[in-house]
Design a protein around this nucleic acid. Sequence first.
DNA 1: TGCAGTTTTTAGAATTATTCTAAACTCCTT
DNA 2: AAGGAGTTTAGAATAATTCTAAAAACTGCA
Lengths: 139, 139
Amino acid sequence: MALTMSGTSLDFPSRLRAAGLRPTRQRVALARLLFAGNHRHVTAEGLHAEVKASRMPVSLATVYNTLNQFRDAGLLCEVVVAPGRSYFDTNTGHHHHFFVEPDGELHDFPSDKVTIAGLPVPPKGTRLARVDVIVRVRR
Amino acid sequence: MALTMSGTSLDFPSRLRAAGLRPTRQRVALARLLFAGNHRHVTAEGLHAEVKASRMPVSLATVYNTLNQFRDAGLLCEVVVAPGRSYFDTNTGHHHHFFVEPDGELHDFPSDKVTIAGLPVPPKGTRLARVDVIVRVRR
DNA sequence: TGCAGTTTTTAGAATTATTCTAAACTCCTT
DNA sequence: AAGGAGTTTAGAATAATTCTAAAAACTGCA
Ligand SMILES: [Mn+2]
Ligand SMILES: [Mn+2]
Ligand SMILES: [Zn+2]
Ligand SMILES: [Zn+2]
């Protein structure tokens, strides 16, 4: 019995190939930082600082490229909470966020306990893509 | 009987003074564009383009300054929907938004018909500031 | 109405987050 | 191993926003 988390494996090269991405050293290094443990909310700068501290540094341009590719491949989603502050979120399931100001921390909360009733129908000619709820809290 | 909308006046100098801001020509011009009609969602660039088309152009720096001051004074609120895209909203009451991608249009919908139940309590040491709901729709 | 003092405006430089460019490098198939 | 497509990278470029500091305008008071 392999030591894996339910539903995910630590074989990042395979997971990247399955997502249609070549498992390069850089992408595997970033995938490990992102997907080896609990769900995370990272900024490009933050992830770059982390990977720079490792034995296998990656350029900032590659961090941006990779985060965008992971998002486009559905491995991440992007959460915009403040002007010029965009987080990449390893939790791609339905959930919502607490945003703690002024620290800028972002915390998940499950959407299955939350009920949103009475949403109006989308404007003519559009269809629903996603509902984001951001609960802004202050210290 | 004066020709005013319920609850607001078109005497922008007075409204600015009431908000603690000197009624300069630039601020009055921008206030007229923002508050003379229905509620609006504007970007700094968009508002700058509008005022440039008038007889009384205003520098882009002043548009930014003024939008930030109006927001700080409670005359506007700021809505962030996409990376690098922040809207200033003349509707400062409780309400939520449709965001139409890829156009970038933002539409209000009233929050009084919407019920959000089951929100978890804010993290220890924080208290609720605001709940933003963004309904993302696509053409 | 004229001044003085303060606030505001402005052009342009600076900053920040992000994307682009194009040359060097790596991965994968044969 | 070679070839070619895909990827990485440093550095330049772009876009949104803020900062700087000098000029202009507002306001209260003479
Ligand atoms: Mn992006
Ligand atoms: Mn701002
Ligand atoms: Zn999340
Ligand atoms: Zn609105």
